[in-house]
Amino acid sequence: MTSFHNSPTLANQKNTNNFPKRNQKSPPKRKKKKFTLSLKIVSILSFLSFLAIWEIITQMGFIPPLFLPAPSQVVVRGYQMLIDGELIGHIFSSSRRVIVGFLISALAAVPFGILLGSSKTLKAIFDPIISIIRPLPSMAWIPLSLLWLGIGEEQKYAIVFMGSFAPALLYTIDATRSVNPILIKAARNFGASNLTVMREVILPGSMPSIFAGLKVVLGLAWTTVISAELVAANEGLGFLIMNGKEYFMTDVIILGMAMISLTVIIIDIVLNWVEKKIIPWREET
């Protein structure tokens, strides 16, 4: 691309028109799109064959449905539960718990993380607490959350929060620290104050990593949903799975698991879209 021909010169300013315009679709770009499309087809085919093999094997009758029901059986169960409105309720309950818990932890962790990431002293002050909280599984918070918050939704949000706060914080601290120091130097070189550096460089510069981190954390938040719904829950995908276990409803268990994956996939697609909107400048790595 950086060939002699494309470079504008002062001698011939009209040459600039030869530059590929941003909105124009240049041939190499289209090729790339075609390639990613065919990769997508491969992914879809691989998933479909996985389902097909699963279906065939279970239909052959070697494996009792108690151990592994056919995917079609899971789909039928899903359809029944969808019609009687039960499934949507489970998906909605869990999604609400995960999203509220996650948002609270993101809202707390991002500003706090940026602060800790830019001040070594603050980091030193809070390091011990973070190290203590970090390894605790969300399940470990069940007894205390029950004592402090009771059995309502707040308790469930708290479980998701406790499971996602520390990782969100650590990702943000890392993101803040990973801002290229030369950019900070450049800003200071132009006379930027500490506050300006924070606003103009550290905040936008850490955004892609923070966003990438939060995407991982949202996935983690979903893994806490079983812990969150272990106590005093009558609805939710975690409840669906654990209750299915009590009644040996393996199809319901698999349905619950599939719904968690599906919801995470959908949320991921939405997030990728949001990311493209709010970080259009992101450099692909």
């Binding site: 029950l146 004592l147 009771g150 106590v231 005093a232 009558n234 209750n243």
Partner: peptide, 23 residues
């Protein structure tokens, strides 16, 4: 779930929630 709300809890948790008036 119309006249009465029933909540799924383990035995020990029922005792503590009953004590605190949560249920």
């Amino acid at each position: 779930n119309k006249d009465v709300e029933i909540i799924n809890m383990a035995g020990g948790d029922i005792v503590s929630s009953f004590t605190t008036g949560e249920i």
